[in-house]
Write a protein that binds this DNA or RNA. Structure first.
Lengths: 338, 338
DNA sequence: TACCTATGCTAAATCGATTTTGTAAAAATT
DNA sequence: AATTTTTACAAAATCGATTTAGCATAGGTA
């Protein structure tokens, strides 16, 4: 009842273990094993149900055929979809994936990266959070294959894929402005991440392009590390302090959800009392009446591109990539809220 | 720049590799290595930053220190929370987890189990789906450690943990009946899973206990493999055909979400036009006005218990368990909908 | 005929750990 | 003093693959 080894197969086929290895790894021709012998080995291996011992292969080849995926939170819908697509894409390339979530824990990111290092993953797919810059930098220095998703650090020279945040916000803003709405608020968090800056830039640029003045008091920067209830109150105060607002653009879905709660609490009706637009879709937004319009992220595209970029790095004998900074377009989805 | 091996550490400490191994694995005393030598080795290992090569350890010990977690869908909130807790619990026991989702694909479950087998996971945590019975049975026959969660197959003799479905539904029903509601509908799916049968039994038993007749037409069995739109229509037809209903109990959160959509579409108001109760919580239910009352699953308890059960199996020199069929109580959460 | 090359495989080294067996020197026992 | 036992490690086998080097035999060339 014990495991079938390559040695067993060799014995059964009446050849040496090395011969079996050559044949099963497609090096039969190269090692000039006769076709007759090769097919015999293949048959024996097939019907005996032989499966090579992963750990042994890994130890010998030095490749784990495993990718490390580090995301903020595995329960978020964005990351869940991302993880799903990445898993299937990786599988078809013969890799499997171990997930880890930082759970917004600044320092945990570093530990995770080290943990994966011990595990000997061949490459990393990371959605970077503020505290992880140094660790990622280190990986890159060690020439570990790394691809960043959803965000990036300008200082780190490694490939990344993300939505075109600027353009995404522009799409949404154009829609609002096209409907004649001009008093548009923008809600963001104070985390220093490039994608948030881009979203803000999209907001201000869109206003300027339409000759609408950008008012500082129409922009709310919530603090990231804050009790849920505090954020709700701050948000409510913001809306009450700016009664002229006819629309609010929430720069992340987390903020949008808070917004829904506040808007319901205040008894406002969307879209008439206030129009709402949110960056990044969420299950709730489809369902919550009257449906929240959003900028949808091209999650599948991001995942596939990220895998491609990583595979390219893993493939030693492939030349350097032309483009390693990839921005994919988002999609504006119109629902009832705006 | 290459990897630091045990041999290197041995050389640096001026001892044999085996000695280093003994010390670092806490077998120094047993192998009567002098404290002086032991501490020297530990120091060298520490400051050189030595990390044992996982694959080599695995190959030698035959243990991968990895658990396989097979869930239906990684994007579901129940499974996401489950995965999160399991990961942290496993980590503290020195194990890590590889996830796989069957994505409701009947046959994919089998493939996954085989895939994990190749990966040499030490044990399995599975939320069983209908198509997986045979594969799981096989694992158990091969004496692989397996723990089932959320459901189980009566024919398979392996430990499992799940919510007490019967009692959970009872809690909810008692609340509804206590409020004077007697015309209560029950919506379920036609999948043959033990936990759904238990929920139905909870429904009928609660009614009988209060001398309320159980009407067959108040029970809707939706087909599992069905277009979303079809299910919505069927659900709407059900509600329209039973205008006397003053409450509906949805037996899963997926069904509850469909229900919300239909109820909104029909312009009904909760809880006055119709009260709604749902088994298994979901992000949406907290937010969706007026808040959907639910039976919350003890996810953390399930995860922790599952890990315990699995660890017990992995621990060769631990006697047989007393209890291997564990049911944890659910928690009724009152919100606005009922 | 002697030498070289291609063929078709096998033997052995290797990956980096763990674990069993072995072995000098010191201590204890007879 | 001779023998046994204990101490404190070192040497070597092992896990299951991959890969390099080796080695007969057959055929070709000088």
């Amino acid at each position: 009842m014990k495991r079938l080894t390559l040695k067993d197969v060799a014995k059964m086929a009446g050849v040496a273990p090395s011969t079996v290895s050559f044949v099963l790894n497609g090096k039969g021709k190269q090692m000039r094993i006769r076709d007759e012998v090769a097919t015999r080995i293949m048959q024996v291996a097939e019907k005996s149900g032989y499966e090579p011992h992963r750990m042994a292969v890994n130890l010998r080849t030095g490749q784990s055929k495993t990718l490390g995926l580090i995301v903020e939170s595995i329960s978020g819908s964005f990351f869940a979809s991302l993880a799903k697509t990445i898993e299937t894409e990786a599988e078809r390339k013969g890799y499997n994936v171990v997930y880890c979530s930082t759970e917004n824990n600044a320092q945990k990111g570093g530990e995770l990266i080290r943990m994966l290092g011990r595990q000997m993953v061949d490459g990393y797919l990371i959605t970077p959070a503020p505290g992880m810059e140094k660790e990622i930098q280190q990986l890159v220095h060690q020439h570990k294959p790394v691809v960043l998703m959803d965000s990036y650090f300008p200082s780190i020279k490694t490939p990344y894929v993300l939505i075109n945040n600027f353009d995404g916000v522009q799409q949404g803003m154009k829609h609002l402005i096209g409907k004649g709405l001009t008093k548009i608020g923008f809600v963001m968090v104070d985390v220093k991440l490039i994608q948030l800056e881009e979203r803000l830039r999209g907001y201000t640029t869109a206003l300027k392009e339409h000759k609408i003045p950008v008012k500082k008091k129409h922009i709310l920067q919530l603090q990231y590390h804050r009790q849920r209830e505090d954020s709700l109150n701050e948000l409510q105060a913001f809306i009450e302090a700016n009664p002229e607002l006819d629309a609010i653009f929430f720069s992340t879905n987390y903020l949008g959800i808070l917004g829904l709660e506040v808007i319901a609490r205040m008894g406002l009706k969307m879209p008439d009392d206030i129009a709402v637009l949110c960056f990044d879709d969420h299950d709730i937004f489809r369902l919550y009446p009257p449906g929240i319009s959003v900028i949808e992220q091209p999650i599948e595209g991001i995942a596939k591109t990220a895998i491609d970029l990583l595979m390219h790095q893993l493939d030693k004998n492939s030349g350097p990539m032309k483009k390693t900074a990839i921005e994919l377009p988002g999609k504006f989805i119109l629902r009832g809220s705006a």
